[in-house]
């Protein structure tokens, strides 16, 4: 089953490669991975979406925790949490009909058209993976998708709980 892991680690050269290496070395699955420095520049925050049964997940969490650079890891899947992903999608907008439809679908999903070309629209949408999938399906029914890029999910527990030092 799909799990979302939030990791706080030292913002050091090589830290990312240790995580990625660990996943490939031990045949763990990575569905998506995002990483960037936090408000404290000495720390990096990573979100990994992965799949596995309880036994595999237990090993993933323990193995990641064992890396010297890792400060904390939590599995936020079963808690109340917020999950967001950014999608940029470039679609064909050659006819009035397709332009109207793309605009309408984008409005429904509360996305934004952020760039236009002679025959294309580029749309931005944030949400969880399910919403993004539904949006892509809706677009596909009306026009041709020329290019799409997804950020992979970032996640955070709701409420007062915080992943920090």
């Amino acid at each position: 089953m799909r799990r979302i892991l939030a990791i706080l680690m030292e913002n050091e050269p090589g830290s990312l490669s240790r995580i990625v290496g660990l996943f490939s070395q031990r045949a763990f699955n990575i569905e998506s991975l995002t990483v960037a420095p936090t408000d404290d520049n000495s720390l990096s925050r990573m979100t990994i979406a992965t799949k596995g049964d309880d036994k595999v997940l237990e090993q993933i969490v323990k193995q990641v925790n064992k890396l010297i650079d890792v400060i904390k890891i939590t599995d936020i899947t079963d808690r109340k949490h917020i999950e967001r992903e950014l999608l940029l999608v470039k679609v064909a907008a050659m006819s009035d009909k397709s332009r109207t439809e793309v605009t309408r679908i984008t409005d429904i999903f509360r996305g934004n058209i952020i760039d236009i070309g002679k025959q294309v629209y580029t749309v931005q949408l944030t949400g969880d993976a399910e919403k993004l999938n539904a949006f892509i399906n809706a677009l596909q029914n009306e026009t041709e998708i020329i290019e799409s890029a997804r950020s992979g999910c970032v996640g955070m527990a709701r409420g007062d709980q915080a992943l920090r030092i």
Partner: peptide, 8 residues
């Protein structure tokens, strides 16, 4: 001493 060794 190593949690990863337990229940692996």
């Amino acid at each position: 001493i190593d949690p990863t060794s337990i229940s692996k």
